Computed example of a mutant assay.
Amino acid sequence: MSESETTISAYTEREQPPDERTEEQERESERTCPECGGAVVADEEHGETVCRDCGLVVEEDAIDRGPEWRSFDRDGESKSRVGAPTTKMMHDDGLSTNIGWQNKDAYGNALSAERRQQMQRLRTWHERFRTRDSKERNLKQALGEIDRMASALGLPENVRETASVIYRRALSEDLLPGRSIEGVASASLYAAARQANTPRSLDELTAVSRVDRMELTRTYRYVVRELKLEVAPADPAQYVGRFASDLGLSDEGEWRARELLKTAGKTGVTSGKSPVGLAAAAVYAAALLTNEALTQSEVSDVAGVSEVTIRNRYKELLEASEVGDAGGGADRASA
């Protein structure tokens, strides 16, 4: 080893440069709490560095050094940096772009007349190119119909997604020939609402659909049979909450209505009867039991069933409730 190399190595071992020593000391001080000298840990969820012993916040608003992309798929493999998650409610799964209708540039200034005409032509051609063939155009129309009816009925997002998937399955298995797009779309939405335990009556769906009730029921039975959908029988109690909310029924009245339906189900009164009519009758009977001012006409308007149905069903529910109470009392007496 030469004399110069020996001198440099000796200098390195003996003394470090001031800047390097200062940085090492700062890193050492960051690893200990300035109050109690305990170890500090990084809380990445809140962006803070805190002491493990005394809880002192040593540093806040830390820089997130993780990836800037977000994963929108279920497996976490897609590293998309922009855009909304894919959805089955759009014919192209939401992967295409849209040209806005604001007629303004990036700075918010209004476009000239010539530029507005140009953008209008671009929008027209863009809409034409979004669908490749008649099959995609029909799918786009059907999904728009499902979204329109779901909005009118107040159905949540998961029901719309399920209805879109059911319609896509019907389209892929060639169930549409001989049937209207609106009919299959309405049947898909009705089946999706039943599967999600947020059912709507056939009268409610017919009111917002472009097909009549007979075509809707026929198409619904065909779609359920061909696609082998698992749809449980409608439970009258699923309608009670919505009817009670629309009619302003108290919590006690809603509880009474559910109890009436539960007792009637045990005695077999609900078998073979319309769940909507049973729910409406239960709400009316519960209003009578809780001394709330509610007429059959008001219940009929909300539920979409006739007053005759309500009169017949609420008497059956009250009789079943008396039978159930008597049977329960006899059981308790024998015990």
Rank of each mutant, 00 (worst) to 15 (best):
K140Y: 14
A335W: 09
T87A: 11
I181S: 05
E161C: 06
A303S: 03
S112R: 10
E30S: 10
V184W: 00
R130G: 15
E173G: 15
D325R: 06
R313H: 11
V323A: 10
E60S: 13
L171Q: 15
A257S: 13
E173Y: 12
E322T: 13
N291S: 11
T219I: 09
A142K: 00
T309I: 04
L122V: 08
N291H: 10
E24C: 13
A264D: 07
G304H: 01
S29A: 10
D61V: 09
E15G: 01
L176H: 08
G241W: 09
V165Y: 05
V41I: 10
K140P: 06
R218V: 14
A42V: 14
I146H: 00
S271V: 12
M90C: 15
E44F: 11
R148H: 02
E136N: 01
E44G: 07
E230P: 07
V240W: 04
D301A: 13
N109L: 11
E35Y: 11
S188T: 00
S172K: 04
W69R: 04
E30Q: 14
V276D: 05
H126R: 10
A110M: 05
H126Y: 06
E226S: 00
S71M: 09
E77A: 12
L249D: 05
D147L: 09
A285N: 03
P236F: 14
T12S: 02
F129W: 06
A264P: 01
G76R: 03
T270P: 02
S164R: 00
D75T: 07
